[in-house]
Design a binder for these strands. Structure first.
Length: 550
DNA sequence: ACTATTGGCGCG
DNA sequence: AAAGCGCGCCAATAGT
């Protein structure tokens, strides 16, 4: 059963089975109670924008099992090759093509969230357009699954933002103090950082140098006789000079301070209360990356450095279950390509070791660099050298990424396993190609065009793998969420997601059940996407009292 | 004084 | 200065 939810001038419309005639209009304040009551029938909630609507329900203590997010699904169907001829895809841009509005904090009420342009009639119309577009697809099952997974992801993102990642401010402060020195007054450098800056100035004989300024630092390095073209740590690490060690230490600590220092803690970590740690509330953006990966807005949740993960600590009596999928992308590639040989290499817990055992490469490190090179489009270095051996051992898998790269180089699009289609190149890209193919094009123009073409090829090559892996991860997480809801009293809940890794916050006595659920969900996601194709998705799972111990 | 870009680096 | 993809964020700097 579908229940369509849409805000109108007189109240919020709730229509059963997409039929406006059977619907009712209720004041916004009563919506959470009505949703709670209807949820007992386990409907699929159809609404314009989970990020706008669901936080309101969550704040009222209401959770739902399933939804269909029209905005996210519109974006997929609008660009999918499989629905390219639909009315939805061929219409001029409309309200559904607007980017996601701001995050969870923006929504004072259901009524205010949904612009009149997307009133009840328009919501019903869009739902109908999406059904019509799906009906047109040659293989609608996959797209249907993608839309369900994307929508489930939207629910999870809102729930995780609402619940927050448990965070111990005391541990965080101790970490910072040990590494940087005590918290300084506003604007001042912490003592340890200031000491390192002093050493750098001394060793470079540059008494007024600001080491945070790349141009200044580069000039000082060159004045000291060092042959560098940038101030990046890769280049600095090559040098043999006493300034290298303190400078790299400075950069590392300066980064920690600016990205995840005390100011960040004050801005992003809510205070602890009795028996409960503080919380980090990231603002996730499902579908925020073209490949289907999530992005975040503010807080940098997807870049939490290993340095501060010790501050992620469960509430007293609770545990963190940290689960990540081992070598997800190559396994997904094997499945997408139906490459049984490569899937066989991944039968154990370590696909890279599997390549060694199969005699494809001598060392595990080579297997890793070769696989990454195949998926990212490496042409030089170790990765480039190893490509022919990989292609000989796994021709089907390599053919998939090569075909994707060729499509991109020609300016075409590619699609993931479930049918998310890559964006076409920007107009500028075509202009560059046209210029190079004119009769009087010079060598520079042709080189430029070839470089653009290869850049595009690497993007589409990676898109099919990264995007299909993102689909597996969404299915995994959605399945795990349902298992957690069914577990005991439903207390265990997802608190973090990072592309191929999740963290569940759980009462300690349920931790083993949660770990088992994570494994079961991984197997279920593999079957859901790839049927009986024999590919494994093993997890590394740890039950810990700190994220640093995972 | 303000906004946009750049260099650099964190994560997968 | 990364080789080889995808992001977001910060401080400094360039541009207006």
């Amino acid at each position: 059963m579908d229940v369509v939810v849409a805000a109108g001038a007189e109240g919020v419309h709730l229509a059963l089975d997409g039929d406006a005639a059977t619907g009712s209009v209720v004041p916004a304040a009563q919506v959470p109670d009505r949703v709670r009551a209807l949820e007992r029938e386990r409907p699929r909630w159809v609404w314009a924008d989970t990020a706008a609507t669901y936080p309101v329900l969550l704040r009222a203590g209401v959770r739902v099992e399933r939804c269909h997010d029209l905005r996210l699904c519109h974006a997929i169907l609008r660009h999918a090759a499989a629905t390219a001829s639909s009315a939805l895809a061929t219409a001029p841009p409309g309200p559904w093509d607007a980017p996601a509005a701001d995050g969870p904090g923006r929504a004072p009420s259901l009524l205010d969230d949904l612009a009149p342009a997307v009133g009840p009639d328009e919501v019903l119309a869009e739902h109908a357009r999406q059904r019509a577009a799906l009906a047109l697809a040659a293989d609608p099952g996959r797209l249907r699954l993608l839309l369900a997974a994307e929508s489930a992801g939207a629910l999870i993102a809102a729930e995780m933002s609402h619940d927050g990642l448990p965070w111990d401010r005391g541990v965080h402060d101790r970490l910072l103090t040990e590494l940087l020195g005590p918290r300084p007054p506003q604007g001042a450098r912490p003592s340890r950082l200031e000491a390192l800056a002093g050493q750098v100035r001394e060793l470079l004989d540059a008494p007024s140098l600001n080491p945070d300024s790349p141009p200044e630092l580069l000039r000082a390095l060159r004045a000291a006789g060092l042959d560098v073209t940038s101030t990046s740590k890769w280049e600095l690490a090559e040098l043999d000079h006493p300034v290298v060690a303190p400078l790299l230490a400075y950069k590392r600590l300066a980064r920690l301070l600016s990205a995840n220092g005390w100011a960040w803690m004050d801005a992003w970590i809510s205070p602890a209360t009795a028996g409960r740690r503080g919380r980090f509330h990231p603002d996730y953006v499902p579908g925020g990356v073209v490949s289907g990966r999530w992005a975040t807005r503010g807080g940098g949740a997807l870049q939490l450095p290993k340095q501060v993960r010790g501050a992620v600590v469960p509430d007293p009596g609770w545990k963190l279950v940290v689960a990540d999928a081992a070598q997800l992308e190559p396994r997904v590639l094997a499945a997408v390509a139906r490459d049984e040989q490569m899937a066989r290499a991944g039968r154990g817990a370590d696909l890279y070791q599997g390549l060694v055992d199969a005699g494809v490469v001598e060392r595990r490190a080579h297997a890793k660099v070769a696989m990454l090179g195949a998926m990212y489009g490496a042409t030089t270095g170790d990765a480039g050298q190893l490509m022919p051996r990989l292609a000989r051992a796994y021709p089907r898998a390599i053919a998939v990424v090569e075909r994707a790269a060729q499509a991109g180089e020609r300016g075409g699009t590619v699609s993931t396993w479930l049918g998310r289609t890559s964006p076409p190149p920007p107009e500028e890209w075509y202009a560059v190609q046209r210029r190079a193919s004119e009769a009087d094009a010079d060598e520079a123009a042709r080189r430029r065009a070839r470089r653009h073409a290869r850049d595009r090829g690497r993007f589409t090559r990676n898109f099919v793998v990264q995007g299909s892996a993102a689909e597996w991860a969404l299915c995994w997480m959605a399945d795990l969420r349902l298992r957690l809801r069914a577990l005991d009293d439903g207390a265990a809940h997802l608190v973090f997601f990072l592309h191929d890794e999740v963290i569940v916050h759980t009462p300690a006595h349920l931790a083993d059940d949660v770990a088992a659920a994570a494994h079961e969900a991984a197997a279920a996601a593999g079957r859901l996407l790839f049927g009986d194709f024999p590919v494994d998705f093993p997890l590394d799972v740890a039950v810990v009292g700190s994220y640093a111990d995972a």
